[in-house]
Amino acid sequence: MTAGYIQAKNVNLTFTPPNRAPVTALQEFDVAVAEREFVSIVGPSGCGKSTFLNVLLGLVKPDSGEMSIHGKRVAGPGRDRAMVFQEFGLLPWRTVEDNIGLGPELQGIPKKQRRERGRHFIDMVGLSGFEHHFPHELSGGMKQRVGIARALVSDPDVLLMDEPFAALDAQTRDIMQAELLRIWQEAKKTVLFVTHQIEEAVYLSDRVIIMTKRPGRTKSILKIPLARPRGYEMRVTPEFNELKLRIWNELKDEIDSQGGPVRD
């Protein structure tokens, strides 16, 4: 494996929940992502794919393994990475504007500059006019737009996305996927995207990493050679379905033997 922009090698992590047997979440897990690449990780529920994002984010320390971003070792949270959370993680007592200003605020940037920087990203995610709304006044899709803007505003090199659209209804999810592609092309970020939806992974990604069931390891990596920009029509082409089927066939064994939930 060649050295990538995001490089994780031999990552091992075992949890020991109180009064439970230890759980090996990640075993000798390797990932390499190129700059400005869009890579998805798919795998059965509980395979450790979300855990890996938390490790890369710096919130969870692995037992062993080497991780670096642009040659810089990962040791705790840093400005070069930002996460978009599945359940949004917005502060209910803050307006859209102030939620988006969280990262800059923690970097000590004065309020006026935070607002100015935030405005650009509020426009980018299509939330103009909602600056002073509170999260409870927004729909699920709009909440996640805030989550994306909040991640982008600190200008991170890497965007980590942990099943960001799993909490949305199907139509909103379709719209948000298209929006994400547009934003990704505009913001020029490296994206590592965790999902359990095969179609989503194929539609969005340059490459898809397929994980085994727990303990999570890389089972195979699939290139998605579909042209960009990608429209909704692409989803009904034979090539697209061919790719979906190949991923499904890889995943099937992992899911069947576990009897876990399957969603597409």
């Binding site: 938390n54 984010l57 710096g58 919130l59 949270p77 840093g78 400005r79 990475r81 930002a82 996460m83 959370f85 359940e87 993680g89 502060l91 969280l102 990262g103 923690l106 970097q107 600190s154």
Partner: peptide, 16 residues
């Protein structure tokens, strides 16, 4: 706890 994690991920310390 999600909010705690979110704030920590953006560089928040104990006081934050």
């Amino acid at each position: 706890l999600l909010l705690i994690n979110a704030v920590r991920s953006f560089g928040g310390r104990e006081w934050d």
